[in-house]
Amino acid sequence: MYCLRTENLTKLYSNNGIEIPALKNVDLRVKRGEFVSLVGPSGSGKTTLLNLIGGLDMPTAGKVFIDDRDITGMSERQRSDLRLASIGFVFQEFNLIPVLSARENVEYVMLLQGVSPGEAQQRAVETLAAVGLQGLENRRPNQLSGGQQQRVAVARAIATGPSIVLADEPTANLDSETGHNLVDAMRRLNDELGITFLLSTHDPMVMDSTTRVIRMRDGALLEEV
């Protein structure tokens, strides 16, 4: 059972009338419970692929299936609802809503899902504890270190019980120890809770932590390592 599947996924960017292929006929399958890293040089199409999988951008051709539902034919609102229900995101930096505390950032997505405020608060505290942030729940993003902010983003990404968490170079702006700890935390969530992760990275240390490594170059998938 694949929680993520793409078929012939292609994305062309138009620049002054010249079409530049960012992604070429990508066929990718990720099974539930996998911990996958996507590696490749800058400009190889990692971010474009993650954006298309998350429904943040639309492909020029091809399809994306999340839990066997084709998201490329969905309306903007349907894709919003799908992201809320099935996809967690962690970006490189500045992931959090700055006017909300760590706990409120995690609560935000649950409240959008219609979870009661009391339950959302309790689950947010538990999830923050699971990524090692107990005691920092009421801090605003600007009162947290970069690593702590990324942990809040991970906690928020898993709080809704998604089918897959997409992380676009989550450790790129962290020192190696902090990055290592963050990946460890994700790895633990994968082991203990069976949450599926797909993360892009340049970092060999991150690659080593994942169970599967997919290489990309010039918008295409190369071999799997």
Partner: peptide, 16 residues
């Protein structure tokens, strides 16, 4: 702009 992008990525609807 980026903040709104993040909110949309999290599943916030355009109407919201």
């Amino acid at each position: 702009t980026r903040e709104f992008g993040i909110m949309r990525a999290l599943g916030t609807r355009p109407a919201q």
